[in-house]
Design a protein around this nucleic acid. Structure first.
Length: 487
RNA sequence: GGCCCCAUCGUCUAGUCUGGCCUAGGACACCAGGUUUUCAUCCUGGCAACGGGGGUUCAAAUCCCCCUGGGGUCACCA
């Protein structure tokens, strides 16, 4: 079931919105397949819907793909021998195919108005019949059709689906899928405005671009018989197909805005690491083996196999994504993490402009201290805000820890102790704290809890030695003094 | 509703093609312990699945049939 043609696969987005999670995964699988087999991965822009295309969408989609780490061998911005890669620029190619098929009677004019078709659908619905075009213009005399067209009557071109054929699609993921041609309606191949539709251009281009494998979402399975019939009408070799399962929302239905963020960009702007998204998308419908779930592009490429792509839909599990994000962040070098988090710190107004060297190295320390507590870059400003302020207001738990004579006395004692120490903070704060506790004949908890509350305003956060370092001598002592003075 | 696809822990999955090694493995989440100055991390343990019914076979999660359930699609969108 493998083709002997060179591997050429494509991802064909339509620039009518941002890149959907499902599309991203489809692109990813195509990319992996091409890289695995030493083939070419191309991008083709399906911009036949002139009403809804926007330039902004196109750039958003390309940026999302790049952010994920996918590169393409042919397509927008890189060119290639099979271009142009925008369908809006390939009209003459389509026109040749249209003319030929029309002359051969494989395409015919249909003069039914949208209203008439709507009426047909309603009638079929009422009669509980199948909703399908009734071929009312299929047998119209060609000369008559020609005359009406010449007279300016609007028409679409429909594909004359042959009767009595069984279309067998040897799907690389699902096995053989069969359709009877009677089930396939005479679909619209060319709109009244002359622009051919998706099913038409897709086939003409896949043929012209010598696409060897079409890997796409399962929602396209139903289009496949139409396309196969067109390949045959054109006398072109069909590619092999592989329909990947859908990505589902928490409700078990096709992922939609109802159940969460559907655009890859949403995750980017929320500060999810791209490596984690890449990894997570792979896990939705693909597995390397029975125990590997953290892996990157190289491992994917060397292991990718359509036989290991699942047939059933996969629910997009945010919990697991978050865990993966945290895992990637924990394994990120502090300097790298600091620079990745910078845009979010700037956005939150905690850092103005490009940080100078001193601030930069402070940010690296910050990243190192917070690394184990983050699941996204976006969380840093919120979780580290207490380090950026002058003074700190204790939350309710911290206030409780600071209440009472003893707590205040210990905080003040700690302040005095730290004030005398050089350098600041001490090399080993833990040892200092321990000695302090023994000195005052109390447990570590009695010391650390109020000290932490005073310094951070909460009962959580990084190691106190790190907090001291990040706060600096003056600010740390100030917070201890204020807490001790609080009544 | 017609057509098409699918079916292992709550979720992602391994195992299914090439029946036996499966008293069904891993991961997330969850629960319980441990380490730690707190939180987090980390470590240990636990909970938890072959949708149902028929076959075939010495043997079925694995093969066949039916049922049930879920999903996709029925545009001059892609």
């Amino acid at each position: 079931m493998t083709s002997d043609r060179p591997v050429r696969v494509r991802f064909a987005p339509s620039p009518t919105g941002r890149l959907h999670i499902g599309g991203a995964r489809t692109a990813l699988f195509n990319w992996a397949f091409a890289r695995r087999h030493g083939g070419r991965f191309l991008l083709r822009v399906e911009d036949t819907d002139t009403e809804r295309n926007t330039d902004e969408s196109l750039h958003s989609i390309l940026n999302s793909l790049r952010w994920l780490g996918l590169d393409w061998d042919e397509g927008p911005e890189v060119g290639g021998e099979f271009g142009p890669y925008f369908q809006s620029q390939r009209k003459s190619l389509y026109q040749q195919a249209i003319d030929r098929l029309l002359a051969e009677g494989k395409l015919y004019r249909c003069f039914a108005t949208p209203e008439e078709l709507q009426e047909l659908r309603e009638r079929q619905m009422a009669a509980k019949e199948d909703l399908r075009y009734d071929r009312r213009f299929r047998d119209l005399d060609p000369g008559e059709a020609e005359r009406r067209a010449a007279a300016g009557e609007p028409f679409v071109l429909r594909f004359a689906v042959p009767d009595g054929e069984e279309i067998v699609i040897p799907d690389l993921i699902r096995g053989e899928v069969r359709f009877r041609s009677e089930e396939v309606e005479d679909w619209v191949a060319v709109r009244a405005n002359g622009m051919p539709t998706y099913n038409f251009v897709c086939v003409v281009d896949d043929a012209a671009m010598e696409i060897s494998h079409v890997l796409r979402g399962e929602e396209h399975l139903i289009n496949t018989p139409k396309q196969v019939l067109l390949f045959r009408a054109l006398g072109m070799e069909e590619p092999l197909f592989g329909h990947v399962p859908l990505i589902l929302g928490a409700d078990g239905k096709k992922l939609s805005k109802r159940t969460g963020d559907t655009a890859l960009e949403d995750y980017r702007s929320k500060g999810y690491p791209p490596e984690a998204l890449f990894n997570f998308l792979c896990l939705l419908g693909f597995s390397i083996d029975d125990k590997t779930d953290v892996f990157g592009p190289e491992e994917l490429v060397s292991a990718f196999d359509l036989k290991r792509v699942n047939k059933a839909g996969a629910v997009f599990d945010l919990d697991k994504l978050h865990w993966l994000c945290g895992d990637y962040i924990r394994r990120t070098e502090a300097a790298e993490l600091a620079s990745r988090c910078l845009p979010w710190l700037q956005q939150a107004g905690l850092v103005e402009g490009e940080p100078a060297a001193e601030l930069q190295s402070w940010l690296v320390d910050l990243a190192a201290a917070m690394r184990e507590r983050l699941q996204s870059y976006q969380e840093l400003p919120e979780k580290a805000a207490f380090l950026f302020q002058d003074g700190v207001e204790p939350d309710s738990k911290a206030a409780k820890a600071l209440a009472g004579e003893e707590a205040r006395r210990l905080v003040e004692g700690m302040r005095q102790k730290l004030e005398t120490l050089e350098p600041f903070p001490p090399e080993n704060f833990a040892a200092v704290a321990k000695a302090f506790a023994e000195e005052h004949e109390v447990g570590m908890g009695k010391v650390m809890k109020p000290t932490r509350a005073a310094l951070t305003g909460s009962l959580g956060g990084p190691d106190l030695g790190q907090v001291l370092k990040l706060l600096g001598r003056e600010q740390a002592l100030k917070r201890l003094r204020q807490a001790a003075a609080r009544t």
